[in-house]
Write a protein that binds this DNA or RNA. Sequence first.
DNA 1: TGTACATCAGTGAACGCGCGTTCACTGATGTAC
DNA 2: TGTACATCAGTGAACGCGCGTTCACTGATGTAC
Lengths: 222, 222
Amino acid sequence: MNTSKRSRGRRGYHHGNLSEALVQAALDLIAKFGPAGFSFAEVTRAVGVSPAAPYRHFRDRDALMADIARRGFERFADALAAAWDSGQPEPLAAFKAVGQAYLAFARNEPAYFAAMFEARLPPGTSRELTQATDRAFGVLRQACETLTAGLPDGQRPPALMISLHVWAMAHGIASLFGRGDSARRNIPMTPEQLLEANMLIYLDGLGLGAAPNDDGNGDSNS
Amino acid sequence: MNTSKRSRGRRGYHHGNLSEALVQAALDLIAKFGPAGFSFAEVTRAVGVSPAAPYRHFRDRDALMADIARRGFERFADALAAAWDSGQPEPLAAFKAVGQAYLAFARNEPAYFAAMFEARLPPGTSRELTQATDRAFGVLRQACETLTAGLPDGQRPPALMISLHVWAMAHGIASLFGRGDSARRNIPMTPEQLLEANMLIYLDGLGLGAAPNDDGNGDSNS
DNA sequence: TGTACATCAGTGAACGCGCGTTCACTGATGTAC
DNA sequence: TGTACATCAGTGAACGCGCGTTCACTGATGTAC
């Protein structure tokens, strides 16, 4: 705060951690104006360096965008994995926690979320991005695998399909209802409640009935 | 095709149907480059009018965008209503048709879909837009209402919640897997199959069991 | 049927602006000896 | 411990460009009489 303008003097000629600072500034702008709403030039101004400086760290604007998406998926994968926690203490509860982690990420990291899903990065943008995406999906898939392991062979749908369903449900709710003020309609439930109920009904359909009187979905809060 | 350059002579000084032409040109650009990837100037070039011409029809770029989103939701509502067809000939089949119509719209009208859901238009942009959105959702909700009418009172969740779930499932699948080449992973099912299965499992969970041997989901295609 | 006139819809030139990117440069840092 | 030098990371001025928007204008259309 005391080193306002240009913040020279903080470190002099060399910034020291410029690429990190550029990413943070870009995230701020994306959070405010969406993935299309940040410019390379604006980012340099926010950080207080010359407009040519970023080119030492990123080939161009798109490379910065892709790196942000990659970082987003890394964090996302970490968050989902932490929620799953190898299915501890109990697979069903852990599974629900994964869903809630999905929503929490969309809400708390809107800039990453937008960079990951709304930046329209061409499919094969970078190997690192693809790998990070796969890792995040892998957590979901592993959770579905574990959760359905107990079902009798005859009526156990492929875990791949189930994980795609779960991804779609969580993503749909996060996209439509889960961000700050986007599409805030008159809905008498939180996104979290909505997803919880959606998952319960879906799992019921799979034959993973979750003892409906287990959770307070009765009249305890009416 | 014969009136290339500027297409003057087609109608001379007055275009006759400019606002329509502007919308179409914008849709083409949105389909190619996303909602952020079209400029007012580029649209006028595509249509062959001066850069000042659009201002007779749209207050500014955002007004054009909002009008496109509104048109999109009108068509969307029409498509869903046509698929539902008042639940004829049979509610469950009609309901599935609504889901398929959702995917078909996302695939066949990617520009409208993007304008509707990815343009980041501020919530209260226009009353017409809000009304069109509500009409589309109303179709979904009515379908859910009809479909669940037969459930015993005790185990019938609110139709509002169910319609939100259905919207989220369809929207999640459409967003993640349903557009041309976006996020095309190695998935051994079409979005349509994925949604069909998702709906069946979900409806099963609701107690609307759909006689699983009704449709060819067994080994007939293995 | 013909003329005068109001209104409408598009013109084209101009504006100021912010953008991405390049270039030769230079200050700071780290390393060899 | 001190000096020479290579490398690294940021400078700042400049470029050409496309953008959104404005303005006074003018050609075409429709209507009153």
